[in-house]
């Protein structure tokens, strides 16, 4: 691990032999230019992310994808789309549902920012329905549900055959997303994939009747 992440060395310490000033006041007229610089710096981060993941894979002998990871998506009609630790539960759910013949898969998002728009669009274009499983809500948002659904729908907007996308609120505040929840989500996505449209933009697990 030390090879990948060597001990931290501050590049600008508060050192009397090399004086530097930290955190000066930014005035209103200086704000837009600084924000533009930050935005442009963010546009350059994908290269850094890809390099860092490539280094990590090489040193640690792994094969992680930098942006989106697919799990059993070959021939899948609909997929779970989520981030983080709940993916482990989702993988079990996919294994179980596949054994029963469901055409389900999992797409894991690794970075919310910078959002890999092209990669997400490319991967999701293969499916008929996408269910974002989200642990954070956005009160009064465009889709009335979570945050990831906005990004996913925006990323898929330019696709000729875009999948239907709906969101499932579950695991808020660190709650567990149960296997049963994923099975129920799969049922809803199955119906959505067959009909080509969604009944609701957001389902609250444990509160809506279907989930």
């Amino acid at each position: 691990m030390d090879e990948f992440l060597p001990p931290y060395k501050s590049h600008l310490p508060l050192d009397p032999t090399k004086p530097s000033n930290h955190g000066p006041q930014i005035y209103a007229d200086q704000g837009p230019a600084i924000d533009l610089q930050r935005g442009q710096a963010m546009l350059d981060t994908p290269k850094v992310v890809e390099q860092a993941i490539a280094d990590y894979n090489k040193i640690m002998g792994r094969n992680y994808s930098p942006w989106v990871e697919e799990y059993k998506t070959d021939g899948a009609d609909y997929v779970f789309f989520l981030q983080g630790g709940h993916c482990k539960t989702a993988r079990f759910a996919v294994d179980h549902l596949r054994k029963k013949g469901a055409k389900v898969g999992l797409v894991k998002l690794r970075f919310m920012r910078p959002f890999p728009t092209e990669k997400v669009a490319e991967v999701l274009s293969k499916f008929k329905a996408v269910g974002t499983v989200e642990s954070s809500t956005s009160y009064g948002g465009a889709m009335k549900g979570g945050n990831i659904i906005h990004e996913v729908r925006a990323a898929c907007y330019d696709l000729p055959n875009r999948p239907v996308v709906t969101s499932f609120m579950s695991g808020l505040g660190g709650e567990v997303v149960e296997l049963e929840t994923f099975y129920n989500i799969a049922k809803i996505l199955d119906t959505a994939a067959k009909k080509g449209k969604v009944a609701q933009y957001v389902y609250w697990a444990g509160f809506d009747n279907d989930v």
């Binding site: 009397p16 090399k18 930290h22 000066p24 006041q25 600084i34």
Partner: peptide, 13 residues
């Protein structure tokens, strides 16, 4: 302090 301008010749945060 204002951004890009400072009166402090010593390290300051």
């Amino acid at each position: 302090t204002s951004y890009l301008c400072t009166p402090f010749a010593m390290p300051w945060t």
